[in-house]
Amino acid sequence: MNFLKNGGIALLVLYLIVTFFAVSSIYKDLVQNNSQLSVGHVIIAVTIFLGWVRFVTWGTDLKVQKDELGKQIKYKSSKISYDIMTFVLLALYLIDLNYYQKDDGFGNVFLLIALGISVLLNPMVQFILALRYK
């Protein structure tokens, strides 16, 4: 990766500053103020992590993402991510069903709906894309 290209050093410094600010803010909230972990803390941590993964993966060169190899990497990673997400949702639903089962026998309805959407989403998108090319 050529970090000097397209202002890469400035982006790296910006990521470092934002990461330091977020980590110090979360540390202050959790350790010094004895507060509990909140949804906001998790969202901030995940966003910072995703920013770093994207920066390390692609760097600052946008052409790499748009060339043929970049498109193949994005396609394969999205397919693998979809399969992993579906499996994790199934595992979470089965765990919830076995350990936290309610009287109705359904378990967590929201997990069941999310699992159904994740199973149906890929074939539906493929169908829509196939219609576009026919």
Rank of each mutant, 00 (worst) to 15 (best):
L37R: 03
D29H: 09
G59V: 13
I113M: 11
R132N: 04
S78R: 05
Q101E: 14
T47E: 07
M1T: 10
K28D: 04
K66L: 08
L121Y: 15
G59W: 15
A91S: 12
K76S: 02
L121D: 09
L11E: 09
S77R: 06
V56F: 15
Q126M: 11
L89D: 02
L90N: 03
F127G: 02
L131G: 00
Y15L: 12
L14S: 05
K28E: 02
V53L: 12
N108M: 12
K76D: 01
L69C: 01
L69R: 10
V13A: 08
L94I: 15
L12F: 14
L115T: 01
I43R: 08
D61S: 05
L121G: 01
D61W: 15
D104N: 10
L62H: 06
L4K: 06
D29P: 00
R54D: 14
L112R: 10
A10Y: 14
K5Y: 15
V88M: 13
Y82H: 12
Y82G: 03
Q126H: 10
I73Q: 05
L92Q: 09
L14A: 10
N122T: 06
G7D: 08
I43G: 03
F55I: 12
V53G: 00
V119A: 05
Y99C: 01
D67E: 10
K79H: 09
H41E: 14
L14G: 02
L69P: 00
I9Y: 12
L12I: 09
